[in-house]
Design a protein around this nucleic acid. Structure first.
Lengths: 222, 222
DNA sequence: TATCTCTATATTGTCAACAATAATATTGAT
DNA sequence: ATCAATATTATTGTTGACAATATAGAGATA
């Protein structure tokens, strides 16, 4: 027999954790904003028990700060903290490239190329440009980090740090908009991966992220 | 007037989170072991509510895995996962050294030297050797990461990754015992920091951790 | 003896009520 | 009118009870 019933799969705390995290990352719950338990529990139609569990889990993920007897707030990053994350990213994505170069086959590289050309198509239209800035760039990085084969590295970068950076961007409403340059850099990175040159790929990726970091600082100063 | 009363400072969930985390890191709650809510709530003298919040926070920190309707287990690392963490450590502590080199003053270096010589004294006795293996080595790394000035880097390494690695060690009861070699490497690193040579310090630290990683693998294979 | 089913027990998930603390509004005095 | 003290409200912290699910055990059958 088939399995028609979707089988109540996860717990309320889990489901609401996902929803709140998405809301935070999307900016619906802005950085610094207060997490109001009665309100959210009403909004999601659950009691405060599992809601508090979800909030505690978010605390563990460093997406909210909890002050005893006062409550939880969505974390808010200043420039300094964003830079700290960029420094970590630079190091870790460099590592990801070095690891990825050891094991990417031609098919993986093809995938990367297709991704890039798809982005280049998207970027033609105004909408596309927005799309690229907001999401497309990350796709590329996601894929490379996944190709590194290091699962924890993937979870750390794609499951935590990217979220936090997106938080900063919604805060300052500033995205790294330098598509042409980024494109060139992206292609160079794939070139290096294709020729199995891990050291070069690492170097290029570090530069790529470092230039994004510099742009961030520049945008802040004007 | 002074502030004599310690003022009930934190919540039950916070306090029990600390206690459980310590128990996990110390190995009192072994990797893979089940977290039994009724038992722990009785043991800590609290109800299941705040206990579950603490567990959820541990889940966010990736120290326990929760399966719906079944419960939480202390995470358990296999060699492959330990290696993944070492790869990340190598990259991040290299970064820490590079950053630290830019801003360590003579006093910081003095502190590092004192720490090392203190370790060398401790190591004379059998007890000392144990001490060194278990804690001393980390002191050195802690201090350097703190000198990097990158707060998030510090929290990531010293507040998460080290904990996980310690978990693996309690699991396999194998510590990286190569004090003499490590000592030499440590001193070389301080030398590099002293001469403000960030690149060299980074290189040496990466090597240092890489050799620890190789030892880990070797220990596993016999 | 081994395996399966059914029952009993234990554990997890959820909720609503109460207690403690913080935030807000009100009152009164200067 | 402004500030301080007080009363009121809202929010957080904690608990115990109940429901749903999973685990363990006893008994029956092959």
């Amino acid at each position: 027999m088939a399995s028609p019933t979707p089988i109540k799969t996860s717990t309320l705390a889990d489901s609401v954790f996902d929803q709140i995290r998405t809301a935070i990352v999307k900016g619906e719950l802005p950085p610094g904003s207060k997490i109001n338990e009665p309100q959210l529990s009403k909004q999601y139609g659950i009691s405060r028990g599992p809601l508090r569990e979800a909030i505690r889990r978010l605390e563990g993920c460093k997406l909210v700060d909890i002050t005893p007897n006062i409550g939880a707030n969505v974390v808010s990053l200043n420039l300094e903290q964003a830079i700290e994350i960029y420094e970590i990213r630079e190091s870790l994505e460099g590592l990801a490239c070095r690891l990825a170069a050891k094991q990417t086959n031609t098919q993986d590289c093809l995938k990367l190329r297709r991704l890039l050309s798809h982005h280049e198509q998207q970027i033609q239209s105004e909408n596309g440009l927005l799309y690229y800035q907001k999401e497309g760039d990350l796709d590329f990085h996601y894929l490379i980090v996944r190709l590194s084969g290091n699962t924890r590295l993937f979870n750390l970068l794609c499951g935590e740090l990217y979220h936090l950076l997106r938080l900063y961007r919604t805060q300052t409403s500033s995205g790294p908009s330098r598509p042409e340059i980024a494109f060139k850099q992206h292609h160079q990175i794939v070139d290096a991966l294709e020729s199995q040159d891990g050291e070069l790929a690492e170097l290029l990726m570090k530069r790529h992220i470092s230039s994004a970091k510099k742009l961030l600082i520049k945008q802040f100063n004007q």
